[in-house]
Design a protein around this nucleic acid. Structure first.
Lengths: 243, 243
DNA sequence: CGGGGGTTTGACGAACGTCAATCGGGGTGG
DNA sequence: CCACCCCGATTGACGTTCGTCAAACCCCCG
């Protein structure tokens, strides 16, 4: 949470490209409003991997991820963990005061966030409503993704779950320019995947091996390669029709 | 969706007691505002069991359940179904235009709803912000419940899932005056429970039998009796601590 | 009396978790 | 430079949970 170092200006602009693409894609933020928002970002909050992101005040704070990955996770008393969603650059989330929520946000890599309220504080007036509207739409989209996750956990088998999650991540990452159509970086351990999918680590590993043996995909070096996207989409069992 | 028949006035007041209790409990609606809202309800939308609730306009519409149960469900192309949440009197939900959502709202019993926007249309001005604020808080609470559902599906075993869901329903029903501390009506088939919990009907039945054999609870006549609430809460594995 | 929807039960097999051991790479102290 | 170590990935053997199939059953209603 420090003032930006001028030497990082280039890096920041690159990162903001992705993050603004996310707000544009998920929330429909107009490019012109995005350009103004870019100018307003003067302070980022930096979290190390593993850090818990709580609101610094008593009220929930909406934050916008500029760099890095995070997860919304819930921890059971007996050490079981459930990852409810993964957050990537361009996503917005609500940080709640400590001990007030049933679900906490935890950084999975080093992460830089902008607090939306504070960022808008010194920004040109006309973009305020546009940004908040984009944030609201973005949050509503994440809600829809939670329905998908529930369906994943309730109805799909292990391979289906895994592939379906990877395809969702590919799509979201591609929308912010962080994935090629058939490969992307995935800074997650198999334990993260297991915690998200409600599977054991061992079974995640077995399932990955099985998919690899069929030359459907590869996961290594912290990256994923989709070798046969069409067949993968088939395995995931597209279930996007409304009722 | 007809004008209210004066002969149903008594019934309506009774139903509104529950629904207003829900808005008060979930959304913090002040009793005085509730009393004014009660006067504003002049038209209810009635849905038969099994009906799909879509918005009648192009935009999402927020509705408030006065009577009956509903569910948010998602249907897969191969006939698998996932119930993402159960809705009871006093709950609010967003009805979306047909074919626009990944998750549809389906009435499980005969159901009466009030459209929030239309209800507020002819209501005293001062309560508008109070009602919308309560609706927003209520929706945010339902979001938290979805985290719980994800955790249920991802981390709990069959008996844990079942008991945990029943205890959640008991708590919510009790808050609107529709449950005694140890028993309540449950207008759901075992198939509904199976679809919500990601289990097969057969296994739901087996699990219920097992719980019944231990004299922990009974499910019959469309009602549930919690015989040993304390032990049940223990089985459900309270996992309410934040991260 | 017949029929249909929901419930109940048993037998069997597949999917998944657990335990335990090994492996491999990157970091760290000697 | 090497030995050591730790974390994550990997593998096999085995047991449990849960799904599937198929048949009965029960109750309400026509």
């Amino acid at each position: 949470m420090s003032e930006l170092d001028p030497s990082t200006e280039a890096w920041l602009n690159l990162a903001l490209d992705h993050a603004l693409a996310g707000l544009h894609h998920n929330g429909g933020l107009a490019p012109e409003a995005g350009a103004m928002l870019r100018q307003s970002v003067r302070r980022l909050e930096r979290y190390p991997a593993g850090a818990l992101v709580n609101a610094s005040t008593r009220k929930p704070e909406v934050k916008w991820i500029v760099t890095g990955w995070a997860s919304e996770m819930r921890i059971l008393p007996d050490s079981r963990r459930q990852i409810c969603s993964f957050l990537i650059p361009g996503d917005v989330f609500t940080a709640r005061p400590a001990n007030s929520s049933s679900c906490g946000v935890v950084a999975l890599t080093r992460m830089d966030c902008a607090d939306v309220e504070r960022t808008l504080d010194g920004s040109p007036e006309p973009i305020r409503p546009a940004v908040w509207e984009a944030v609201a739409r973005s949050l509503s989209l994440m809600l829809e993704r939670r329905y998908e996750h529930i369906t994943r956990l309730g109805q799909l088998g292990a391979a289906e779950r895994l592939v379906h999650l990877l395809l969702e991540l590919r799509e979201r990452l591609e929308a912010v320019g962080l994935a090629a159509p058939d490969k992307f970086r995935l800074p997650l351990t198999q334990e993260h995947l297991a915690d998200a999918l409600g599977l054991s680590i061992v079974h995640v590993n077995r399932t990955l091996r099985h998919l690899r043996a069929q030359r459907l995909l590869e996961v290594k070096f912290g990256g994923v390669a989709l070798l046969q996207p069409a067949r993968l989409a088939d395995i995931a069992g597209r279930f996007d029709e409304p009722v």
